[in-house]
Amino acid sequence: MTGTNLVGEPAELKRFTGPQRAAVVMLVLGPEMGAPIWEELSVDEMKELSAAIAQLGRVPTNVAEHLLVTFSGEMGHMKSLHGSFETTERLLRGVVPEDRLNEIMEDIRGPSGRTMWDKLSNVNEVVLAAYLRSEYPQTVAVIMSKLKPDHCARVLGALPRDFAVDVIQRMLKLDHVQKSVLTEVEQTLRSEFMNNLSRAQTNDPHEQMADVFNAMDRSNEEALLTALEENIPDSAERIRQLMFTFEDLATLLPTALAAIVKNADKRQMALALKGATEEMRELFFGTLTERAAKMLRDDIATMGPVRARDCEEAQSALVALAKTLAERGEIALVDPGSEESMIV
Rank of each mutant, 00 (worst) to 15 (best):
Q241E: 14
A326Q: 13
R240Y: 07
F244P: 08
A276N: 15
R309G: 12
P149D: 05
S145G: 15
L273V: 12
T255F: 07
L182R: 10
E39I: 00
E45Y: 00
D166C: 01
A200I: 10
D217M: 02
S180I: 11
S219L: 13
A326R: 13
F213C: 10
D166K: 12
E221Q: 15
G8Y: 06
E74D: 12
D204P: 07
E247G: 09
L159N: 09
G329N: 01
S191T: 12
E106F: 00
A250Y: 02
S50Q: 03
D150V: 10
P137Q: 04
S219K: 14
Q201M: 14
L182A: 02
T61C: 01
E65S: 12
G304T: 05
A227E: 14
F285V: 01
S180Y: 06
E106D: 15
V95G: 08
M303N: 09
V181K: 13
W38M: 05
D107S: 09
G304L: 04
G30T: 08
V24R: 00
T202C: 01
F246A: 15
L228Y: 12
G73N: 10
H82S: 06
E74K: 12
A301L: 10
F193Y: 09
F284R: 03
F85D: 06
L49F: 00
N263V: 02
Q208W: 01
L128S: 09
S134H: 11
E45L: 06
W38P: 07
F16V: 02
N196R: 14
L6S: 09
R15Q: 09
N231H: 08
R297V: 14
V142W: 03
E221Y: 02
E39S: 13
V334D: 10
V25Y: 04
T302N: 12
A22N: 14
E192T: 13
D204G: 01
V344I: 15
Q241L: 03
A236L: 01
E40K: 14
S341E: 06
V155T: 08
E312N: 07
F193D: 02
I104V: 14
G329I: 05
S145T: 12
R281H: 01
P254S: 04
D204F: 03
E278M: 05
I108C: 07
M78D: 01
D299C: 06
S316I: 12
V95C: 12
L132W: 03
L132N: 07
K79P: 03
F213V: 13
E339W: 05
A227S: 06
V59W: 08
L29R: 13
G113E: 04
L56Q: 04
H206G: 11
A326N: 10
E282Y: 05
L242E: 10
T226I: 00
Q268V: 08
V319K: 03
P336H: 00
G73Y: 07
L296S: 04
C152N: 12
F244I: 09
V96I: 15
I343D: 10
A272D: 09
K119F: 02
A200V: 04
V334Y: 06
T255E: 15
E184F: 04
G73S: 13
L81D: 14
N102H: 10
Q20C: 11
E135N: 14
E247S: 14
